[in-house]
Design a protein around this nucleic acid. Sequence first.
DNA 1: GAGCCATTTCCACATTCATCGAAATGTCAT
DNA 2: ATGACATTTCGATGAATGTGGAAATGGCTC
Lengths: 117, 117
Amino acid sequence: MEPKQVVAALGALAHEHRLAAYKLLVEAGPEGLPAGAIAERLGTPSSTLTFHLQQLLHAGLATQRRVSRQIIYAMVPAAMNGLVGYLTENCCGGEAICAPACDPVAATVHSCKTTAA
Amino acid sequence: MEPKQVVAALGALAHEHRLAAYKLLVEAGPEGLPAGAIAERLGTPSSTLTFHLQQLLHAGLATQRRVSRQIIYAMVPAAMNGLVGYLTENCCGGEAICAPACDPVAATVHSCKTTAA
DNA sequence: GAGCCATTTCCACATTCATCGAAATGTCAT
DNA sequence: ATGACATTTCGATGAATGTGGAAATGGCTC
């Protein structure tokens, strides 16, 4: 992932409403959520929400698809992976000791619940 | 990690120079780097760099310590863990299948090189 | 094709952010 | 104490971002 994309993605997430919206999408998974449902849960006017969703789209963090009258937004898994990967790669110079974030002890609530548990 | 902190951290990273500076700190590990070294590598005027480093500090992503005439900045591992953890938690509703970012296949360049390789 | 519904576009406004030179601060060596 | 060095603070400027109402668009149902 290129630095410019990373900056765009981080910038897109760096806002209260957008982060909240994104989190809803993450929790919703591949099925996504219609714009209206997001607006309702966040309590923002629709025009404002559209503005924020566009940012997520433009940053490549989400996709849009139409289902009859509704427009459904969903997260883009690869983008999240790219983001997390970029932030953590070469941590501490790429040492093997290097935990998710250079501190095995503090690394409790981390994403790597892939295999076990 | 509280949403407000996450937004602050993301906002701090959502800038070309700050992301670059932060990456230097991540790669440098716990020892950190003096402000001057960062400024030199990024090619920004010192006053501008200070501005950006303050943002990282204020967001809790970095720490500052003085060593004689230099001021040394270092990353805060727990902050990175918190950030990554927040973004990925409850992915796809907390399913066990849920890889780092809901897509095991795409999750190649991820942080979990902890143990092996 | 009339009317309703979900969502987006347009617009104008206030706010916040980024930049960098010049001057100030803190620290060390002599 | 003086001078040199590393870094920060100040201040002014231009640019980008967030907001929400009103109007426009695309799509379904009757």
